[in-house]
């Protein structure tokens, strides 16, 4: 089976700092992968390259057979809209929009009618236990609620890959666990591939496997071809 995401020879530097120093990586469809590693090891750069947010200096990333590193920014934007979802540690909701409006944005960007988008968004909020919070502003939500809204927004377009960067990094253990369980349940049910940066082993334990980035390279055990 060909891997959904294939990265080969990724290199990226910022000024004199080498963030990525030759990374080869395969991620299978439906797989849940935790990306771990010390701060500054290049985890985020790797995630950004895989998602087509950053272009590597050299190397290629292909997703479902499309070499995204060769696409124009406009095409990559379209791809992000259709195929990818993103969840960050915090502060990713548009502060002026209610929870439900936040969730509709990707659908509206995709050209859906507002009424339909609202219905779909409400469905996702319900699935994440946010019925009551739908009409609240992000500033009025708790950290855990805000993260669940973010997850709803990321999944509302039914992307094939969900990228998460420390999705529970700013939550306490219980809230983190609730958010993770909810996210994993939805991801597993939909067969979405999840690539999740975390420094927390208990979060990583929800993944099918973990890859460890150290000094811009994968730890030996994670290299392609080594089992």
């Amino acid at each position: 089976m060909t891997a959904l995401i294939q990265a080969r020879g990724l290199r990226k530097s910022f000024g004199t700092t080498d963030a990525l120093r030759g990374i080869d990586l395969d991620i299978q469809r439906g797989e849940v992968v935790a990306v771990m590693g010390p701060s500054g090891s290049g985890k985020s750069s790797l995630l950004h390259c895989l998602a087509g947010v950053l272009l590597p200096d050299s190397g290629t990333v292909s997703v479902g057979g499309t070499v995204i590193t060769a696409l124009s920014e406009a095409r990559r934007s379209a791809l992000r809209l259709k195929e990818f979802g993103f969840v960050f540690q915090f502060g990713q909701l548009l502060p002026d929009l209610t929870a439900i409006d936040n969730v509709t944005i990707p659908l509206l960007l995709g050209g859906m009618k507002r009424r339909q988008a609202l219905t779909a968004a409400r469905g996702w909020l319900d699935r994440l236990g946010l019925e009551v919070a739908a009409d609240q502003l992000p500033g009025e939500l708790s950290g855990g609620e805000a993260q669940r809204v973010a997850i709803a927004r990321a999944l509302v377009t039914q992307p094939s890959v969900l990228f998460a960067d420390e999705p529970t990094g700013s939550l306490d253990s219980l809230a983190a666990e609730n958010v993770l369980t909810a996210m994993l349940e939805l991801v597993r049910k939909a067969g979405t591939t999840l690539v999740m940066i975390t420094h927390d082993p208990r979060t990583a334990a929800y993944a099918d496997r973990e890859i460890i980035v150290r000094d811009g390279q994968l730890a030996a055990t994670d290299r392609v071809g080594i089992k």
Binding site: P201, A204, E210, A220, T221
Partner: peptide, 22 residues
């Protein structure tokens, strides 16, 4: 010898166990 690798191997083992428990 490669002490990094030794630790990685152990980390993998630990995480595998954590996954089981999870």
């Amino acid at each position: 010898d490669n002490a990094d690798r030794l630790l990685d191997v152990q980390r993998t083992e630990h995480l595998a166990r954590m996954r089981e428990l999870t």
